[in-house]
Write a protein that binds this DNA or RNA. Sequence first.
DNA 1: CTGAAAGCGCTTACAG
DNA 2: CTGAAAGCGCTTACAG
Lengths: 278, 278
Amino acid sequence: MSTEPEVPANRAPTLTDVAKLAGVSVATASKAINGRDEVKAATRARVLKAAELLSFAPNALARALLGGRTGTVGLLTSDLEGRFSIPILMGAEDAFGAGQVSVFLCDARGDAIREAYHVRALLSRRVDGLIVVGSDTDPRPPLAGTIPVPVVYVYAPSADPGDISITVDNVGGGRLAIDHLLACGRRNIAHVTGEPGFAAARDRAEGAAAALTDAGLTMLGGKPYYGSWDETWGGPRRTSWSSSTPRWTPFSAAATRSRGASWRPCVTSGAMCPMRSP
Amino acid sequence: MSTEPEVPANRAPTLTDVAKLAGVSVATASKAINGRDEVKAATRARVLKAAELLSFAPNALARALLGGRTGTVGLLTSDLEGRFSIPILMGAEDAFGAGQVSVFLCDARGDAIREAYHVRALLSRRVDGLIVVGSDTDPRPPLAGTIPVPVVYVYAPSADPGDISITVDNVGGGRLAIDHLLACGRRNIAHVTGEPGFAAARDRAEGAAAALTDAGLTMLGGKPYYGSWDETWGGPRRTSWSSSTPRWTPFSAAATRSRGASWRPCVTSGAMCPMRSP
DNA sequence: CTGAAAGCGCTTACAG
DNA sequence: CTGAAAGCGCTTACAG
């Protein structure tokens, strides 16, 4: 054990610094710090004290270079500003545990070139896996090239059925909504939804229609009311209607203005139902 | 140059693989790939072709171990779900450039313990710097311990004036709002704002009051209307008022329901004004 | 129980 | 122009 602390000058302390201060070899210091049991208790204590003294934090890069795992994951979103990436990111973070696995967040801004850049960077950082989050439930083209790590597509499934995708059961969601209204005693039920160009809108409509049919009912107006994906379309404030839509105001937008709890976006046709695998 | 491609079996291709395939040493392969000019053009071409063939992506970890820089930054937020972290994250990402610097996103969920865990993890991953994003403009305690990399506090400044903080000029924001209304010809101006426990509310009120005083006017009601940080407080729908607030409805919440553009949160007292350093 | 040695994938002086 | 060698910070067999 040297006489003075020898705090390293201008760089982060290394295992060698710790070992030197504790008067052992780096091999032993490594074992002590990693909780291997082939170390005498007194030795371990000395090493740990030295590490503490130097505020030693093991270099995860060096460790990863050996182990093959980096403990990092890339989360690639196409639409960070949107409503869906953040909850998914938070769920992933929770699952990974604070500090166990760290996530690289990349926003491709809906641009394929940008996405490719990010993938390249993430792979050279040797992430252990990739999570690709889309902003709607329409299938998207899989990542180009051979990706040497596991990839999970979330929200927007991969167009390749061989890939692993976690997406929303929108057909089931449409069913759930109708079943709920039926359970409330309603019989005259309309379906107000988003643009028919989205799989989400079509799928929910399909589920809703099926549930109504099962109940021996028909949809009010005979078909879903497709419209734009915003609260205005579902709200009561509409004053002029196009000829293809009925003169009738289905929902109150009151939920979007509820008092108290912090203010949250609210979609009128079920996008907020819990995610489940298909 | 070997006769068959020798694609490595079950692992990512390394510089050694590339060098072998190109028939040069790793040193030369390294120089060729990194664009050093001490390499014969023909040799460089051969190396690049080999790299291409193997889909070689240099191991950023190994590179970082040498260079001292990792090209990564930690972004530590306390409130990912809130309104402010995401725009800041996107700005940072833009500034870093896709794939040049990657950002680790960590959400401390407002918990100091969790924050400490994340800091520890980020430091062991040897980030080149840290961005700490708060959810309001009240000063926050600086990160505990000695942080060996540059730290920038954003939105919520550090309580230590020696630290670098980028925050919002709320006093100036309050002034701007009043100046705008004055320019529109208004003379009876009230200030409806958030809870007085927040520096943001107090600062904006201060700026607004000062601008009114400068114009020889007084604030309608004689003082700011402090209330909860939500649209309801600023909106027209209020039916009952506490005795401390006037029977008067200041703002229309219509902006939060505007048609067309995708739906955005809207704060009634200026939080959305552009950020500037103090 | 402890330590010398090899090696993870790369870069950088330093000889040839 | 090219390559052998050392080294970044760590871990892991393998001897002692």
